[in-house]
Design a protein around this nucleic acid. Structure first.
Length: 422
RNA sequence: GGAGAGGUGGCUGAGUGGUUGAAAGCGCUCCCCUGCUAAGGGAGUAUGUGGUAAUCCUGCAUCGAGGGUUCGAAUCCCUCCCUCUCCGCCA
């Protein structure tokens, strides 16, 4: 959510900024809603003041006749108040709904562009493997020894789910263990959180009200399956005031993520790149506003370290204005190389939300004069399923086996090669 | 799931219809006193949002959440959420 005072005072600037991401900010509508709110609020509050004063006078009034007449006045005011308050509530609601639909302001250094084609590559790292044989994609490789099974998952659930078996399941687990261990060594506190969250939490991080159709909702409770650990972890401090000496607070959480992927029919139907359920290790930071730029860089580096250590070729891009997410002011994507697709695919998304989420969540920092909103940052470190797919493809051998990356061998109980054809 | 008790400021805790946004204590901040330390004295110390661009000033709201009764609600009524104790069930 944007600062409403900033909106009131910098309308054109904000309109221009939002225009870059293709969002049409309706200045007239805003002014209309806000002036209506202002009028009603002033009316209501002055009426309330009158009512409060009268109530006090009635309490102290000794003369019965005077008291009766004041009671009569108070009764009338009370009735008027009821009506006008309903109107004010409506106006405040309209205003709030209007504000909730406005995306975050973009940082200065976000390149302009409409779609992902305009994302800017910052650098490429690692060596793209050259294969002297005809390569397979991760689905083919996984199915070779029934490590990846899509028929079973359809029986159990439906499409876009997967069953992993045997060493493949173990490698999948090894990956999340390795990521958690690496991040905790780098100063992140490991945290375990609920996978079902209430509506307020989703609103706090910005998934609601705009993206209702993207999430799975429980039918017999007002609860949602988390689309990312960002939601439960960020909301830990909803309605809290933090001390500045405890910042930055850094958390790492490993959770499943559930997404309906409405809007992506037909996309990535092959393999485990786009699933309704996937594992992710998520990094979340609560930081002082002054530090959020550098902390985003730090967090992105921590995510990159996993790719570097796994020897996976990747590149870092900064998302352009049109591709940057609703709540984010600036986002770096890390994209890993997929040999079968001869392209880089997103494996981590690291964003600085500035005070956009903390305003919704009401996370403040204690200050001597006036409390300020903290900044939130998060990023994947990394998406486990996609990392697994990338390893399978990049580490494949001619005979269809998969070499285990050095850093994972211990986690695999010493196994150095898996998926050997039987 | 059943029965009972309860949810008040950073914390403890008083308050059952009328200057109570809230006593008292602890903590914290500032000042004074004091060889140091310890102790003592004084003042201050919730959040949000309006009127303002803003200090000041000032209004309104907030005692788990949302409704209701009333001129007036922390206090009475209803619904929901949560915590504790006992029973049941379960991993």
């Amino acid at each position: 959510m944007l600062d409403i005072n900033l909106l009131r005072n910098n309308l054109n600037e904000i309109q221009n900024n939002l225009q870059k991401r293709g969002f049409d900010f309706d200045v007239k509508a805003f002014e209309k809603i806000d002036s209506k709110r202002k009028k009603l609020q002033i009316q209501t509050e002055s009426l309330q003041e009158k009512s409060n004063i009268l109530a006090k006078e009635i309490a102290q009034e000794k003369n019965q006749a005077v008291k009766d007449s004041k009671l009569k006045d108070a009764k009338k005011i009370s009735n008027d108040l009821k009506e006008i308050k309903t109107n004010l509530d409506g106006a405040l609601n309209d205003l709030n709904n209007f504000l909730l639909e406005i995306p975050n302001l973009l940082s200065e250094d976000v390149p302009e562009g409409k779609s992902e084609e305009s994302n800017k590559i910052i650098y490429e790292k690692g060596i793209i493997p050259k294969f002297s044989f005809e390569i397979k994609d991760h689905q083919q490789l996984g199915e070779l020894s029934n490590g990846i099974n899509f028929e079973e998952s359809v029986t159990i659930a439906k499409s876009r789910f997967v069953v992993l078996r045997n060493e493949m399941a173990k490698l999948h687990r090894a990956l999340s263990q390795y990521m958690l261990d690496t991040h905790t060594e780098n100063g992140y506190e490991e945290i375990y959180v609920p996978y079902l969250v209430n509506k307020n939490s989703l609103e706090g991080t910005g998934q609601l009200p705009k993206f209702e159709e993207d999430s799975f909702k429980i039918s017999n409770e007002e609860m949602y399956l988390i689309p990312t650990a960002e939601v439960p972890v960020s909301n830990i401090y909803r309605n809290k005031i933090l001390n500045s000496d405890e910042l930055p607070i850094s958390y790492v959480a490993h959770t499943p993520c559930f997404r309906r992927e409405a809007g992506s029919y037909g996309k990535d139907t092959r393999g485990i790149i786009r699933q309704h359920q996937f594992e992710k290790v998520e990094l979340v930071k609560f930081v002082h506003p002054e530090d959020s730029e550098t902390e985003l860089d730090n967090l992105t580096k921590d995510a990159e370290a996993i790719l570097t250590n796994l020897n996976l070729p990747f590149r870092k891009v900064i998302l352009c204005s049109g591709d940057t997410g609703f709540s984010s002011s600036k986002t770096y994507d890390l994209e890993v190389w997929f040999p079968s697709q001869k392209t880089y695919r997103e494996i981590s998304s690291c964003s600085n939300f500035k005070d956009f989420q903390s305003r919704r969540m009401k996370i403040r920092i204690k200050q001597s004069k006036e409390n300020i909103l903290c900044h939130t940052i998060n990023g994947s470190g990394l998406a486990v399923g996609r990392t697994l797919a990338a390893i399978i493809e990049n580490y494949q051998t001619e005979k269809g086996s998969i070499m285990v990356p050095d850093v994972l061998i211990d986690y695999m109980g010493g196994t150095k090669e898996l998926n050997l054809p039987r």
